[in-house]
Nucleic acid binder design. Structure first.
Lengths: 189, 189
DNA sequence: GTCTATAATTCGATAGAC
DNA sequence: GTCTATCGAATTATAGAC
């Protein structure tokens, strides 16, 4: 069969995203991607040159992080939780990045960059510029940890939660990280 | 040089843990492990049979989770935070499991099993048997998320925190997950 | 116990016919 | 645009000499 260039390219990208998201970078082969897309492996090389370039295309994300400056301070946790959950469930490239960022330094840098440039400014508007990076980092740890246990490791109790249940648990946590004063109670003295 | 069987085996295991923890399962080669240990690659096969068996030995963990039943309920978050942080910084096998569990199903099952059998009972003693699995899963999501951002992705603000700073942030979060009533505030009505 | 040699696969990548 | 054939490299694993 003869397809258009755009169709073939899109089919390859879709299959690549699924494979990279499911198996990571190393375990994924050009051959398996081609088989999933129903085309010849040589076509993958023709359109993307190398495996690395194909990965870069599959993992490319253009996050349009909304402006949260209008959200009431007391609801920022709930809004952020919902936003991230929707993002994870609809954007396969995010799961690609998380799965591969664990063993691929370039992908790890992409993850760091995303949270620094997207979540950072939002947090900076809520906390002082001194504490903002730490608070954003901790919020990222909870967001990524939930994605890890829910979508990657599939810890049963976490994977079984509904979207709204997750938001109801996560919202107060993010609220605390981003807005509440940090007053560590003294440990066992 | 001629070493004892036990020494050689220990040297291989140590090198294997470092490589698996740094690069994951696929990217790690028997040759690189042997080079790190300063021995011949054939010795690795001689002692462990296959790469998979070597990995199983390197990722084997015998977690001696302490009994937390004597800890005051109000301090369980702080105690657990400190316990896990010490665990992560001293037990390289845990980082091996996290790094490989993302692409290896067997390793993922090990992670699930560890949290189910170790954290589960502790939480069951604090929360009702109905909510306990969810609460344990959410606590696991924060613990794993922190390990992910601190040790694997090395998000700068999180990686730079001192042990005590991490505990001071994490303690109230785990406390909430494990002990506080779950009363989701109504979202935007 | 240690090492050389090599078998058997697998994969990314290229060349070129149609 | 599509596919066959194949190269070259890297890897796990085995056989066997010393």
């Amino acid at each position: 069969m003869r397809r258009s260039s755009a169709d073939t390219k899109a089919a390859i990208l879709s299959a690549a995203r699924e494979r990279f998201a499911a198996d990571g970078y190393e375990k994924t082969t050009i051959r398996s991607i081609a088989a999933d897309a129903g085309i010849d492996p040589a076509m993958v090389m023709r359109y993307f040159g190398t495996k690395e370039k194909l990965f870069a295309a599959a993992a490319h994300i253009d996050l349009k992080f909304p402006d949260f400056s209008a959200v009431p301070r007391a609801q920022i946790g709930a809004v952020l939780s919902g936003h991230f959950l929707d993002l994870w469930e609809n954007n396969e490239a995010l799961q690609v990045l998380l799965r591969t960022g664990v063993t691929n330094e370039a992908a790890a840098e992409r993850v760091r960059s995303i949270f620094a440039t997207q979540l950072g400014p939002t947090v900076a508007a809520l906390a002082g510029p001194e504490e903002a990076p730490v608070r954003a980092g901790l919020a990222a740890s909870q967001i990524l940890g939930l994605a890890l246990t829910r979508y990657i490791l599939r810890l049963p109790p976490v994977a079984a939660l509904s979207r709204d249940e997750v938001v109801s648990w996560l919202a107060p946590i993010l609220q605390r990280y981003l807005c509440d004063p940090h007053t560590p109670e003294p440990l066992t003295p």
